[in-house]
Design a protein around this nucleic acid. Sequence first.
DNA 1: CGGTACTTTGACAGTTGTCAAACCGGGTGG
DNA 2: CCACCCGGTTTGACAACTGTCAAAGTACCG
Lengths: 256, 256
Amino acid sequence: MGAAAGFRSSLTLVRKACGACRECDVRHQALCAAMADDDLHRLEGIMSPTALQPNQTLLRQGDPCRKVYSLTSGMLRLFTDLPDGRRQITGFLLPGDYLGLVDDHVHSQSAEAVVASQLCSFPIRQIELLMGEFPSLRDRLHRMTRAALRQAHDSQLMLGRLAPLEKLAGFLLMLDARANRQPRGGRALQLAMSRTDIADHLGLTIETVSRCFTRLKMQGLIRLPDAHLVEILHEDRLADIAGIGIQPEQLRSTAC
Amino acid sequence: MGAAAGFRSSLTLVRKACGACRECDVRHQALCAAMADDDLHRLEGIMSPTALQPNQTLLRQGDPCRKVYSLTSGMLRLFTDLPDGRRQITGFLLPGDYLGLVDDHVHSQSAEAVVASQLCSFPIRQIELLMGEFPSLRDRLHRMTRAALRQAHDSQLMLGRLAPLEKLAGFLLMLDARANRQPRGGRALQLAMSRTDIADHLGLTIETVSRCFTRLKMQGLIRLPDAHLVEILHEDRLADIAGIGIQPEQLRSTAC
DNA sequence: CGGTACTTTGACAGTTGTCAAACCGGGTGG
DNA sequence: CCACCCGGTTTGACAACTGTCAAAGTACCG
């Protein structure tokens, strides 16, 4: 925790060739998908690229809202922490996601890079002007906010009513669905975040997370070539565990 | 659970005098606050009033999205439930709040009245047309969605990282802040929902909720004239318990 | 090769869930 | 008017899941 303090003022600015937006990996997933090719330069004109190193802080809860960010590569964690050190990660941002528009004038949560990441940043004032000019942009941001709200609701269900094993199963499936959008080809899922991050997202301790990984492994549902690489062997049985159609016996710690 | 099944087709339609919107209690809190008095009839024109009895179902997870609702009086609970009966209440709607715009074509959660409630309902198609015509309406809905997202994030923190006593303290303070927006006048807070609802919102059991009420009472922080009426005696000390500046000793069950 | 950070495993204790019973208020029917 | 019943709430006893503390294992980097 707090390992990245002091980085904030050294956000690296990356120069990008003009017109590069058109060939961006997330051109059709991110907020810029709302803009036609011909209007893209309007967004590009107010954009500054930003790069973050692993664990570098992008913003802290309490910071004034000045910019909107769109993640183009890497992964961010969004979290709130309490004065006594407890932390809740409300979600992980993947390429194409955005952050920075909130209902208040200060941020209610912090954002840090999980791994090296690149973002487009836009002055919030200018984005608001563009939203006025391009209703499709406002529409897209609204839609993306609704998607985020739905994810938050799913997370509430997980946190409030699922057992640890169910939480982890659900987490792996969700992350897999978001990260690899082409249907599962037996490929492995990269777990960029640490066990601490997973624990702080699922409302568990790292020990419990680790034990649950072991149980999923024992039951033959996943493989763990190393701690940060998961191979999902039985997506269907994982989904059963994750909440839709529970077999309570499976969940009892039957000798771990 | 399921006590209100079968009510769905009997949503009562309430006739309202034309122009009544202008004198509505939530005229300046609800989505209609985005419309000038002169344009209000455009919203009113596509609105049908709806009334719900206690525990009546407004919509169920899986239902197609057809309407947007604005709550004018009463209280709704929004929840997801699992096949085995577990339930997570993601939030309670108060007058002025809206629901119905989601990122999918079906609802991911159900909505039921906690107490007798009245709503304005708008065909989703027409609302979208109006949003196109009145950017301020789209802006307001976006803003309200962001407020909902923030509430969901707060709830995630509660569910994932707070102890039961902290959860309840935080819940009471939040509900009080939302229900009585004038500063606390020593007045009592009406708890319309049951212990089961509170438990399903905070990720606890009703027994634990009840024990926490008792502890807050014992510590002299609240009074409970009856099970559904709370008098907050020490807002500041409740806030301490609720997360900002925790005194861990206070939380240990010191004889209950 | 040694050191560090992270993960896994183990032993144990405590909080919270489970089960059960008592309590309470309101409504119905005698 | 009182007794009874019923749903919801509170209280109690107990067990177990999960957190805490501690140590061992593993991978990575200098």
